[in-house]
């Protein structure tokens, strides 16, 4: 099923305005669970490319997903949809924060959202791992990426070190 550029814009607009705590979890929910345009593995592959390319990875993923369905128009539609709503909402939040940011209630709400957002990312990661059905070698590469990142090794180094190993594992599995 191939969506039109308009459908991409609409879907990504919904992703944008609901994506508290980062867009990747919500993009997966929309593209895989709600619209069924991509499988879990296809989404994870596009997310992987989006992370290896420099720049915001939710945006890169949207460009790759959009371009895959509708070329440059699809990429622009996906990115436009993703950013349009949040830019307006963030402007409003900045205005409010300038006035009310010192209040304890506001800081408490921010703390609660931050904790829940972390759980949301974690749950989404588990779902993607389940959907990707990784082989033993892939699990090792994934755990290494997790460990190095938790150890605060800079991301470019992690990718330089582990991307070749992951690709090697994929190569061997394909044979």
């Amino acid at each position: 099923m191939t969506p039109t550029a308009t459908a991409l814009f609409t879907a990504y607009f919904q992703v944008g305005i609901s994506s508290f705590g980062g867009a990747n979890a919500w993009a997966r929910r929309m593209l895989v669970e709600k619209r069924g345009w991509l499988t879990d593995r296809e989404f994870a592959e596009r997310l992987g490319l989006g992370q290896v390319l420099p720049g915001p990875n939710a945006m890169n993923t949207a460009i790759i997903v959009g371009h895959g369905f509708c070329g440059v128009r699809g990429a622009l539609a996906a990115v436009g949809g993703l950013f349009a709503g949040p830019l307006l909402i963030l402007s409003a939040l900045c205005l409010l924060y300038d006035r009310f940011g010192h209040l304890g209630v506001v800081r408490g709400a921010l703390a609660g959202v931050a904790s829940a957002a972390a759980g949301m990312m974690l749950g989404t990661a588990f779902k993607m791992i389940r959907g990707a059905r990784p082989s033993a070698a892939m699990v090792v590469v994934g755990l290494a990426a997790l460990g190095l990142a938790l150890w605060r090794v800079p991301l470019p180094w992690i990718i330089l070190a582990l991307a070749p190993l992951g690709i090697l594992a994929a190569w061997r599995e394909a044979k």
Partner: peptide, 27 residues
Amino acid sequence: RRVERGLVPVALGLVTASALLLGETAL
């Protein structure tokens, strides 16, 4: 296709780590 497939575990490891680091910041 193989390059894309090989990047998947790296992506999933990094997403999991960001989630845990974000949780720690929130703490």
